[in-house]
Design a protein around this nucleic acid. Structure first.
Lengths: 196, 196
DNA sequence: ACGAACATACACCGATCGGTTTATTCGATC
DNA sequence: GATCGAATAAACCGATCGGTGTATGTTCGT
């Protein structure tokens, strides 16, 4: 056997990596070769390359979120949990093989917002915003909706900065997020004060 | 004659638009056809498609900055001048033909940070940061360097949000920038206080 | 009226694009 | 061991990729 994973799994995994590293314009020949799957098989597992793009992005989503978001049983404060996302992004962005948020990158390359891949991208950006919002609610923030969107914008802005390879000023995203939380009155004591 | 502009100008203008709207993977045939210039002419005006990418981006730069940045004889406060950039971005992002900051988009698509187009992109993002920095210095901000980078991040984050077509919450970028300026003590009275 | 310079359209190059088809091989079932 | 389904490699499709070569104007200065 080729490997433990099914053809479909190998295909989606290779697609995630290649589409992220080389862009969605990478050819299906190269993709199938990397996955060790014949083109014939690919086209009976998926209707089109566009479907592979969307499905591989959807498959990457949970994995990517697991990398960034703190685990649910991480008992730190909402503030610390939110800032940890920016800290991890900061670490990842320092790598040479960092090409930005895969969802934003894909949506940027696809151009068409109705492309199934763009729809998936939109969904997962919303998931990040939802995480921020939930933490902000826990912290008792005043306007969690707006604040969550703002944090997502900071996240994507930090990512964009890494993409264009501006001179690395590490921690500036974390610092910015902290400033915004501070301005919104979200502090570490906040949760405790609320709980008491 | 075809038009007043030279072949080179028509080529760069068409390239700016097509590369932005359809991505840099648009073919040179389509580009030349749109510009009304023969492929032969293009290849004796430019060494390669990559060079056209870089030059067209460099040509778009001043134009794009003129759209966003306030004119030098706009006598509003640094705070107002900075916020006006986010207001204009907010307007532009509402258009259906908005595909994000062209510099970030191009760098995202090119992947390779050493591609001449990526170098140009980096340069123009720095120009935006420099504008912010200059205004912050005028306003007497404490850490203009970090703050300027943070504002650039907010700018690109707002852009990314528009690219993925998240539900439009207009003005949230402006609001975020205002929050950060407020936290940094940059207020409208600041300049006057300094001048007095 | 002439030749030099240039810009054009267009064929051409090998490679690759997304996608389909064919022929072959392999492994499981009976 | 015969049979069938599934997976494979590879040819094939028309179109397009970035880039070049050629042959036909068109516009000049002289």
């Amino acid at each position: 056997m080729k490997s433990q994973a099914t053809s479909r799994e190998r295909l989606l995994e290779a697609a995630s990596e290649l589409f992220y590293r080389d862009g969605v314009s990478i050819g299906v020949d190269a993709l199938c070769k990397a996955a060790g799957v014949s083109k014939k098989s690919m086209y009976q597992l998926f209707r089109s390359k566009d479907e592979v793009i969307a499905e591989s992005l959807a498959a990457r989503g949970p994995y990517y979120n697991a990398l960034l978001l703190p685990s649910p049983d991480d008992e730190r404060s909402p503030r610390a949990r939110i800032l940890s996302v920016f800290e991890r992004e900061d670490e990842r962005a320092a790598d040479d093989d960092f090409f930005g948020c895969p969802f934003v990158s894909t949506a940027t390359e696809l151009k068409n917002p109705e492309h199934p891949g763009s729809v998936v991208a939109r969904h997962f950006k919303q998931a990040l915003t939802d995480f921020f919002r939930a933490e902000l609610v826990r912290a008792g923030a005043e306007d969690p909706d707006t604040l969550a969107v703002q944090l997502t914008m900071i996240f994507d802005g930090a990512s964009a900065r890494a993409v264009v390879r501006a001179q690395p000023l590490r921690g500036v995203g974390v610092q910015l997020a902290a400033t915004v939380l501070e301005a919104a009155g979200v502090r570490d004591e906040e949760l405790a004060a609320h709980a008491n």
